[in-house]
Design a protein around this nucleic acid. Structure first.
Length: 266
DNA sequence: TAAATTTGACCTGC
DNA sequence: GCAGGTCAAATTTA
């Protein structure tokens, strides 16, 4: 019997080590050698990622999500997000009452992936741009786009909806892949803009601020943010933070649909 | 004061 | 016609 969780962890660790090795080699090889080093390490990285995908494909349980830090960075070189038109749709839009509101094209479900997680945190910074009550669903659906959409044209969006099976988990659908830096790693394989990305604020504060207990004092929230914004462990810290909130509410019996309605899904 | 969130309006696709 | 997805003004927050 394979301990899959341990296997995923091991593969992820191996892949991260490959990244570090690449960064080290980059400092020591000349331009001629750089290409082959990059190719080699990328191949290693892709192999790890492929292994993780295989694992996840035959796993519908807790391992249903590939750790964000293990995603291949190749996505940085190409934006596959379905185009969201903000103006020119090919058709002549009816004159809007206010500006050009609503001139867009609905995204398709291709290039999307689904996750079920106990937390909506994934290490990336998201900005909420909408919320919608869904028919026959108690929980509204929230819409997020990458915070770096403007800065780097990262068109990744995600939809988050609380599951109604009583598991307090979230159904998350991602559209497109990030063209900004990987989450909280500080390590880039082949992002053309890796240098400037390293200076980007990428804390998950955006998405978490309104997704924690609203009764939380501001200084407490700040403390949690700062303590969770470390380079290597921030994702874990934020996950723990969420779990703390959930457990806290569960313990006093306040973790109910109304809790989500008022805080995460007001 | 800038950035993020909320929320009603508007548009697309089925 | 309806449900869902996105926009953007208003509001809130740091």
């Amino acid at each position: 019997m394979i301990n899959k969780e341990e296997l995923v962890e091991t593969l992820t660790k191996g892949r991260n080590s490959a990244k570090k090795l690449q960064n080290l080699l980059r400092q020591e090889v000349n331009d001629d050698g750089l290409v082959s080093v990059d190719e080699l390490v990328s191949e290693i990285s892709q192999s790890f990622y492929g292994g993780l995908l295989v694992l996840n494909s035959c796993n519908s349980g807790e391992l249903s999500r590939v750790p964000v830090s293990a995603r291949p960075n190749s996505a940085c070189s190409g934006d596959q997000t379905p185009e969201v038109f903000t103006g020119d749709t090919g058709k002549t839009p009816a004159p809007a009452v206010k500006g050009r509101r609503g001139c867009y094209k609905r995204r398709k479900t291709i290039d999307s992936r689904v996750e079920v997680s106990s937390t909506i945190e994934d290490g990336y910074a998201w900005r909420k741009y909408g919320q919608k009550k869904i028919l026959n669903s108690k929980s509204p659906r929230c819409y997020f786009r990458c915070t770096h959409k403007q800065a780097y044209g990262c068109k990744t969006v995600k939809q988050v909806q609380k599951l109604e099976d009583g598991s307090n988990k979230f159904h998350i659908i991602y559209f497109g892949q990030h063209t900004c830096r990987p989450p909280n790693t500080g390590l880039d394989l082949d992002c053309n803009h890796s240098e400037k990305n390293h200076n980007l604020p990428n804390s998950p504060s955006t998405i978490t601020k309104n997704h924690t207990d609203p009764s939380l004092k501001q200084e407490d929230l700040s403390n949690k943010v700062s303590s969770a914004s470390g380079e290597s462990s921030s994702a874990l810290a934020w996950k723990e933070m969420f779990l703390d909130d959930f457990e806290c509410c569960e313990n006093d019996g306040s973790l109910s649909d109304s809790w989500f309605d008022d805080s995460i899904f007001p």
